[in-house]
């Protein structure tokens, strides 16, 4: 498992440069709550037909920043983007909330959870 750090401004360019759709398999987008107002956003990839070779692009950011969408680079990322929006109550370009949560359920269930 290789971890590559990036920033919110550069993440789109980094993934565009890195992602070859016949070599890399996009697994999912993920969020991990850190202390305070920060959390880690991850984009996880693995290589086809290789022995356990995975790459995680990540960036640490605040909850109120808008995260760029990578839907035009990887079309299948739309569903995991919607999940991150619901679970952490953050904003991602072009992804609406309400995949899992209703109006009266607990909002932002994973924010600050597990600390």
């Amino acid at each position: 498992m290789k971890k590559v750090e990036s920033t919110l401004e550069n993440i789109r360019d980094d993934i565009k440069k890195f992602y070859d759709y016949k070599v890399w398999h996009f697994i999912t987008m993920n969020g991990v709550a850190l202390d305070g107002e920060r959390f880690e956003v991850q984009w996880i990839f693995s290589r086809y037909e290789a022995m356990d070779e995975s790459v995680i692009y990540y960036t640490v950011t605040e909850y109120d920043k808008i995260i760029p969408s990578i839907e035009d680079i990887i079309p299948s990322s739309i569903i995991s983007q919607r999940e991150v929006v619901d679970m952490f109550g953050v904003k991602i370009d072009g992804s609406e909330a309400g995949l899992y949560l209703d109006a009266d359920s607990l909002q932002m269930p994973l924010r600050g959870c597990g600390l």
Binding site: N30, V32, A33, S76, I79, S80, E83, G114
Partner: peptide, 18 residues
């Protein structure tokens, strides 16, 4: 004893766009 994060990526979830 408590974990910090458990992320479950399930097969059907990732296949919905296809």
């Amino acid at each position: 004893p408590m974990l910090d994060r458990v992320r479950i990526k399930t097969p059907t979830f990732a296949s919905i766009p296809s």
